[in-house]
């Protein structure tokens, strides 16, 4: 099987506190993988390990391996900056750049990545990215509005467009819908389904219905351990582990 990411024995610590314990998982190319589990079990920590977002956190430490394109991102002289261009991220709280217009927000990743682009090339990328994020129809006439003046749902889609503009291969999303109303969250869900043809998506979610609808596979975390990972159908109807069953039936967590 063709894997976009292979995680082997990944452990992570904040200071003395071990947050991830021997996580091993394969993430298939062009699939949607949901990461679920009770609050504090290490979901965010885990996906932030996949694009080395913890690099600047004081006291943070990892062991184990994460393979991307056949190379271990933690040892094989990988430049985290280049890695993050291939492995994009959307955060729980929409975080458009303040004091930048919609256009600038989407263009900013390209603007600073070295290659010179003409104004019209830039405009093309912005349009394409906003279209993919299902935002073009609403905003094509308002590209000079401040990004922070949009509604929460629009801001989150703007952040998705911003991430797509640098043409990553993998998109990591940390509870992208948790700050949104049901309509906005349904739109993001549609978006994830559309994007899954071309992108590998790893999404943290607390919403089981959502995970059931969008994911090819679901990973269940508990207290820093990967309890099990399987197809959504299997996890939600017939989980192998009793703890997974207890969680999805709402008996704890």
């Amino acid at each position: 099987m063709d894997n976009a990411l292979q995680v082997k024995d990944l452990c992570a610590w904040f200071g003395e506190h071990q947050v991830l314990k021997n996580i091993t998982m394969d993430i298939r190319r062009n699939s949607v993988t949901s990461v679920m589990g009770p609050s504090g079990c290490g979901k965010s920590t885990f996906i932030r390990c996949l694009n080395r977002m913890h690099d600047l956190t004081p006291g943070f430490r990892v062991s184990g391996e994460v393979f991307f394109d056949g190379r271990n991102i933690y040892t094989d002289r990988i430049d985290p900056v280049l890695l993050r261009r291939k492995v994009g991220m959307v955060f729980q709280q929409p975080n458009p750049f303040p004091r930048m217009s919609v256009f600038e927000n989407v263009a900013v990743g390209l603007k600073f990545n070295g290659k010179k682009r003409s104004r019209s090339e830039m405009a093309d990328v912005v349009e394409k990215s906003l279209r993919m994020a299902a935002l073009w129809d609403e905003l094509s006439d308002h590209l000079d509005r401040p990004g922070t003046s949009l509604s929460g749902g629009q801001q989150q889609r703007l952040c998705i467009a911003r991430a797509l503009a640098v043409e990553p291969e993998i998109l990591l999303m940390d509870e992208p819908c948790s700050a949104l109303d049901p309509t906005s969250s349904a739109r993001i869900e549609d978006l994830i389904e559309d994007l899954s043809d071309k992108y590998t998506i790893v999404v943290v979610t607390h919403n089981m219905q959502q995970a059931g609808r969008i994911s090819d596979s679901v990973a269940f975390f508990l207290l820093g351990e990967l309890i099990e990972m399987d197809t959504a159908a299997k996890i939600f109807t017939n989980p192998a582990d009793k703890r997974t069953e207890e969680y999805i039936t709402g008996r704890f967590g």
């Binding site: 977002m53 900056v81 993050r84 291939k86 991220m89 975080n95 900013v108 990743g109 990545n113 952040c159």
Partner: peptide, 9 residues
């Protein structure tokens, strides 16, 4: 973090 995640130095 938003900027770093875009691969901006």
């Amino acid at each position: 973090e938003g900027a770093l995640a875009l691969g901006i130095e």
